[in-house]
């Protein structure tokens, strides 16, 4: 039984998460269209470039709300999943950074950290079932 996919709190969590992902995509494509297609320049290019990061604050609110509305088991599993996912993301990003510096790997922009983290959450969430 996956604690993230059953119960009313988890349904709200999934819907809100899907909503924030959609908003992230819409803002991202809008900014790309405005900057690349319409030649948006300073000073408006600065807030436009930051805008795709704003839904991440929404994700934080959604996760905290889900934890608040969940029981102690789901809360502990969620916390453990996120801690492991954060550290997997750090591990991958630091390793890739040094591979760029010392092994000539292609440079990846920092915005890839966000999707890498969500992949780490999805993978980790499939295996974490115990709170110990």
């Amino acid at each position: 039984m996956n604690p993230f996919t059953t119960g009313p709190a988890s349904r709200e969590y999934q819907l809100a998460t899907a909503g924030w992902f959609t908003l992230y995509g819409v803002i991202l494509f809008t900014v790309a269209w405005a900057v690349d297609g319409r030649g948006l320049a300073a000073p408006w290019v600065y807030p436009a470039a930051v805008a795709p990061a704003l839904p991440i604050a929404g994700f934080l609110w959604t996760v905290l709300r889900f934890m608040d509305r969940s029981d102690e088991y789901v809360r502990a599993v969620l916390g453990k999943t996120y801690v492991i996912a954060v550290h997997l993301t750090l591990l991958l990003c630091v390793a890739w950074g040094f591979l760029e510096v010392y092994a000539g790997f292609r440079h990846l922009a920092l915005f890839w950290v966000f999707p890498v983290f969500w992949v780490a959450v999805a993978v980790t969430g499939r295996f974490i079932r115990t709170t110990r």
């Binding site: 059953t6 029981d71 102690e72 088991y73």
Partner: peptide, 22 residues
Amino acid sequence: IGVSRQAVNALETDKHDPSLGL
């Protein structure tokens, strides 16, 4: 007891130690 079915399953299968309150 005011928890999810997953929590009961986790308690029964020794995947979660309950808090004192629970």
